[in-house]
Write a protein that binds this DNA or RNA. Sequence first.
DNA 1: CTGTTAGCGCGTTCAA
DNA 2: TTGAACGCGCTAACAG
Lengths: 329, 329
Amino acid sequence: MPTIRDVAKRAGVGIATVSRVLNGSSQVRESTRQRVLDAIADLNYSPNQAARRLSSGKTFTIGVVSPFFTFPSFVERLTGIQDVLDESEYDLVLYSIRSTEQLQRRLRILIGENRVDGLIVLSLPFSERDLRTLKPDFPIVTVDNSPAWHYPSVVIDDVAGGALATRYLIEHGHRALGFVGDRTDSVFRFTSTERRLEGFRNALTEAGLEFRETWCWQGEHSQEAARQAAWRILQQPNRPSAIFAAMDTLAFGVLQAVREMGMRVPEDVAVIGFDDIAAAGYVNLTTVSQHLVESGRIAAQRMLDWLRSGEIERTPVQLPLKIVERATV
Amino acid sequence: MPTIRDVAKRAGVGIATVSRVLNGSSQVRESTRQRVLDAIADLNYSPNQAARRLSSGKTFTIGVVSPFFTFPSFVERLTGIQDVLDESEYDLVLYSIRSTEQLQRRLRILIGENRVDGLIVLSLPFSERDLRTLKPDFPIVTVDNSPAWHYPSVVIDDVAGGALATRYLIEHGHRALGFVGDRTDSVFRFTSTERRLEGFRNALTEAGLEFRETWCWQGEHSQEAARQAAWRILQQPNRPSAIFAAMDTLAFGVLQAVREMGMRVPEDVAVIGFDDIAAAGYVNLTTVSQHLVESGRIAAQRMLDWLRSGEIERTPVQLPLKIVERATV
DNA sequence: CTGTTAGCGCGTTCAA
DNA sequence: TTGAACGCGCTAACAG
């Protein structure tokens, strides 16, 4: 492999000059620049990344830290991130996390060892103080995390989203509403379901409707659990005419149950989900879109802006929510 | 940040000794080793990655090259890769590709610049010769690629898979079979659909059944296109009683059409897909599983084996296919 | 505008 | 078993 020295020799210049044209420094006479460029082309030279990293102190790498791909939503966010980093000079390195302790350890290592120039953290709460004492200004952007952080973030208003979905059902004439959601995640303490439920209750109260425990369920995060729950809820003589599922994946379980019970969607039971993952389109699920891909895009863009300008814009970006009308309400 | 020199000083040894204990060289007296370890702990030292990379010539990084996440199947494979690399000392860097030219360029750069220790290429055909002249023994593992390569690969037998799905329909009493698939991808030239179709025809012939052009369709890869195609196919007075979709995503479009037309699945029309992506479970689609996650796992494992042993095992690994019986046949 | 030089932090001879 | 010294390839002062 040719090195910068070979290029310099061939172009009849010093290595610093080569470095300058490599890094786009304008302080180079055009003719010299051209000679260097030719030499680079002749030798089919390309700079050694490791060397650049060592001497510049930058890694040209952005890390994405995400819970192990348990939920489809992470994948969609990742797609958005990939999307914008792909156009940039930064590599995208993936780190998956299985526990909060592992998360904190990972973050400390990644930051402490300078293994990445910036970190995008998906849906994972972490100890901010700890990290800030380690390295106060390390670039971190969070997505779908508690918005109280001092780091830039991309968030949604889950309470408003829950209310939005609920009002949509009410507007479609439903007065008996059920709810299906998972419990606060035991490992990572995701709490969006709780907040969506809060929005659900708010909208109910607002419309003078009753919140019935027997129409609601919270449990394990799985389609199967949701299916069984829907069975129990819908078997009651006095059953809800519509169900709000706090996540699309749970809505799929509900849909399954409704069909198994020989009822029609949406005539007998309406179902609305939340997230708008790709699969929601496959099954024609009406749902609340939280612009997952876009959330990834914005996070990556904020990271790039920070890295390139050196300036932090801390204001959280709150993504709008919207109902995607399909066939289940 | 403390460097290796700080550790050496504190432990009262030379930096070479520190390096030795860091890299697990056994040539260190136990008491010395302990002193070094203590110093490392005291200083909260961790080696600088960039420096290691430069002096060792290794990147401790494995790249995954994949078509831009157009299909869910890539994501599932990635999950498998992530899964095993996560346990290893290697970082996983993601590169997405939008065209074959870009692919070749990317590969040359990644390999030429030594930016990764190995590359896992998903579903993308590339010029092998070109790369081999560049660097003959560069570690590359391919997944779902033509098996003629000289690189280790993970593949399936698409022809057999097509026949498997078709026979399954026949065993369930269907004699009038339709087919829905995409055309050979214009950008990347994915050809698995053609091969699955070949299997379909083989199985038909084998059973003495007729292949009817009017029951078959190939076109754009999208759920919507498949939906429309299914409409046309099923509107005919003489329609097939079952449809084999070459990919799950297309099967979803077919299911949609069947329901829109007021027909029941599987009583009026049976549908079988291919791939068994996660969403297939959501909608209870009967399909051919090609163990996507497992394919990623195996690819990553083969890469690690290669990297650690220095020995190449070129024999392709062919994953078995199996019918996942759900509710649509 | 350009060349020289001094590190960046670590792996690895080679002696001791 | 250990330490000193060199070099990996490049960036960034600094000097010219």
